[in-house]
Design a protein around this nucleic acid. Structure first.
Lengths: 109, 109
DNA sequence: TACTCTTCCATAGTCTAACTATGCATCGAA
DNA sequence: TTCGATGCATAGTTAGACTATGGAAGAGTA
């Protein structure tokens, strides 16, 4: 998940999508999920993840609460809000729109 | 071609690809070509384009020379170097690799 | 004539967000 | 008793796309 690899903002999209599917997860779990689903292509650094979650909290796309994991550890869990669900739709279609445009350019040139 | 839409570095890829197909073009022409091929989804701003071309010159991916356009205007033409051709391959497969990873995450979550 | 639009180049400075580095804390296993 | 994994978080750096701005030259037009 490097600056020179992925679109800025894509991390938001990936987090939103992951939460939409999985319901509620804590940060570390979100990172591992994305990493696994990408078959280890996308490495989600903690220094990217937590700031991203902070931004998303501020924007009201997610809400958070403290709880305990299955292994009895303290962790902060995140859940999508209605605004987050709407944002997911926006970002998903935006992503699709731009990526197919780029693909078009690459294939046409 | 906005920061919140496209991957940083993608502009390089699009320019490289465009030059690879079209042979040699001047800056303004590169911008219009990308824009047209994307069906106006990607707006290539001059404040993005020219700095990108400078970077690419520095990295030796393109070389430039002054000439005149069909309309008899002074313009700077760009052509791919061997290094640029190699870089194009790298960026193209990189792009493909990451985009399919993102798609995988979005579809799997 | 003056005007606006398009073509063409270029740079200075701003801003976003992913990054590195770092710090802290707990648990289980070696 | 050290190490790895789990878990959170922030400070500061960096790349690069952006806005704003400057210039020049030609074509058309009022």
């Amino acid at each position: 998940m490097r600056r020179d690899e992925i679109p800025p903002g894509t991390l938001h999209l990936l987090i939103l999508k992951t939460l939409a599917r999985r319901g509620e997860l804590h940060g570390y779990e979100i990172a591992r999920t994305i990493q696994q689903n990408s078959e280890d292509v996308l490495q989600v650094e903690e220094g990217s993840l937590y700031p991203a979650l902070q931004r998303m909290l501020l924007k009201g796309w997610v809400k958070a609460y403290w709880g305990t994991t299955a292994e009895n550890r303290r962790a902060r869990f995140y859940r999508l809000t209605a605004a987050g669900r709407k944002q997911l739709q926006v970002e998903e279609s935006q992503f699709e729109r731009v990526m197919s445009a780029i693909t078009r350019v690459i294939q046409t040139a």
